[in-house]
Amino acid sequence: MSALAADAIEVYRTATRNNRMGMWLFFFSELFLFGGLLITRFALWVDEDGHIIRPELDQNVGLIVTVVLLASSYFMNRSEVAIANGRKRDFLVSLWITGFLGVVFLLGVVIFEWGLIQLPFIEHHIGPTDGVFGAVIFGMTGMHAIHVITGVAFIVVVWRNGRRDVYTEERHWGVEACAIYWHYVDLVWIFFYPAIYLIGHAVH
């Protein structure tokens, strides 16, 4: 390895270290956004006696989209490990599956949870105007969905670049950033799902 190349690797490592710190600081910042939404949920979803309540929602939808999102995180991890070990095909396939599952999650949220598209076999939906239940559900899932959409866009960009051999074993910060972002969005859902679907007495 020439001295110049070694220098370039060193520069890349320094830059990646800074990038990584920046990314985590960004997550730290976002913590306050999602935390604010969670606090809103626990402040508004209480009855007169101060008991925590929740709306009656279709538990199957919640469980399925959660499983789909968790599974996508597994493939995202596979994808990152693959590129770090130079297995390019593996990397692209896993990334593709992650993106696909992300889209399935989004469709699940939009069609079944929000009911934006009318389907004959779904009867009743809470809308955004339905009091605090509607406001909080749409506020939380909406903000989360915006992050998932960004994440899917990120995956598409990384996938396209991956096909053009932009990433190597040593240099794949783009993949790493995409992966930790995806895991982060996933992690947020792990807190949101029980807050919306599980905690408190169900009220109709």
Binding site: T129, G131, V132, A135
Partner: peptide, 18 residues
């Protein structure tokens, strides 16, 4: 913003908002 644009009643006491 969303309360105004989409009718999401976070702060509207009518629907339990605060």
């Amino acid at each position: 913003l969303s309360e105004r644009a989409l009718g999401m009643g976070f702060f509207d006491p009518e629907g339990g908002g605060n």
